[in-house]
Amino acid sequence: MAYMHKGWLLLLLVTVQFAQFAGARDATSRESFDLQVPVAPTPVTVEGRARLQYELHLTNFTDSPLRPTAIEIGDGASGFPLARFEGDALATRITLIGPADEAQLQGAIPGGRRAVLYVEMNLAPDAVPAALVHRHSYVRADDGEDTISGPRVELDAMPLPSLGPPVRGGPWVVIYDPSWPRGHRRMLLAVDGRARLPGRFATDWVRVDAQGRSARGDVDLARNALGYGEAAIAVADATVVAIRNDFPESERVSANPKHAIDDASGNHVVLDLGSSRYAIYEHLRPGSVRVAVGQRVQRGQVLGELGFSGDSTGPHLHFHVADGPSPVRAEGRPFALERFRALGRYEDLSHLGSAPWTPRAPAATALRSGELPEGNSVIEVDAPAARD
């Protein structure tokens, strides 16, 4: 009987916890936010942890500003809390769509406006739930704090594409940072009647030497970059579905102008990986693309050369995976590299090109497999010999 009593007590506690998490505190109906998760997260392994990365859209359907104060994320089955964001940790994740105003300066979302909350969570691999639930606390301009629940989001269980590297050798700095206000992670593009986030998991690959230098001689000359002209290679056996090879590039980094949205990727190659996943290579050198639309390529085959075409702050290879063949008209999706060696990381990316990176601790495992490299990490890769 004692065992049964403890079991029922545990069940009761879990049920109460879930009800408190998933249920609204106030049964009174009030207008507030419309809450939507446009793209369900797919777990990707980073440094041995499962990362969930997604966006929550908050649209204020009232006439007055609403100021978010906290968001809690829980396991959809048990209600067990997984993460909580409040204070600066919440404020730095919220971006108002459109121009900022006085309400946003106070951390509020004006009536009739939409904001996007960017979520990144790292969990133990065995703690990833099948679904997520959310609870939001906010303050009304003319009232006290209120709480609403939702939405419930089923995780996308589609297996990640496990890929070879898009380049050879190294060291390469794999640049991305979810917190950058104008980084790939936060660049929503509303094209053809739909807002998408192509760069949700986009990476920029910059070649460096052992001292952390990224160029030789005059660093303003694009051709002096260490990575300029390096081969961009196929990450898998795939079919070429889109290319551009004739877009000019500026001779000097400082002279590169702003480009229209369809020209931002410059010269590029898109590979169909199958299962509605596409590998996209951007900023290739003009005239360097060696493949044609419809051509079947093999992993390791040279597609083109790293260059400086399109919107770019310096010569590098932009690489990401998406659910469509367009650089701007598709949702960015996670991917994993089959194998790479993690050498270290730039804690402060402003030192890139002028100082060495911070090496990994001796006890850390340098050889990684089936992972997405951590942002701003320095890695080396093995790749098959060129196949033309």
Rank of each mutant, 00 (worst) to 15 (best):
T28W: 00
D311H: 14
R216A: 15
I261L: 15
P315K: 07
H57K: 13
A124H: 12
L132E: 07
P373W: 05
H283S: 08
Y278L: 10
L221T: 12
Y3P: 03
D263C: 05
L349P: 03
G79Y: 07
D272I: 04
N256E: 10
R244I: 06
R51C: 07
D192P: 01
H351K: 15
V208S: 08
A40Q: 04
G274D: 12
L349V: 15
I71E: 12
V133H: 11
L189W: 04
E86I: 01
L132Q: 00
A330R: 00
P99M: 09
V208K: 03
P68V: 10
A70S: 13
P198T: 12
G183L: 02
V219R: 15
V378D: 00
I261N: 10
G324E: 06
R341W: 11
R168C: 02
L13R: 02
G87W: 01
R93L: 04
A232M: 11
H283N: 12
T147S: 11
G169E: 13
P384M: 07
L35M: 14
V293Y: 02
M4H: 13
G48Y: 08
L52N: 00
P110R: 04
R114F: 00
V206P: 01
R152E: 15
N224A: 07
L343G: 03
P110I: 07
F80G: 07
P65S: 06
R182C: 09
H5G: 06
A50I: 02
L317P: 12
G375M: 05
R113C: 04
I97S: 13
G300E: 03
D246F: 02
D88L: 14
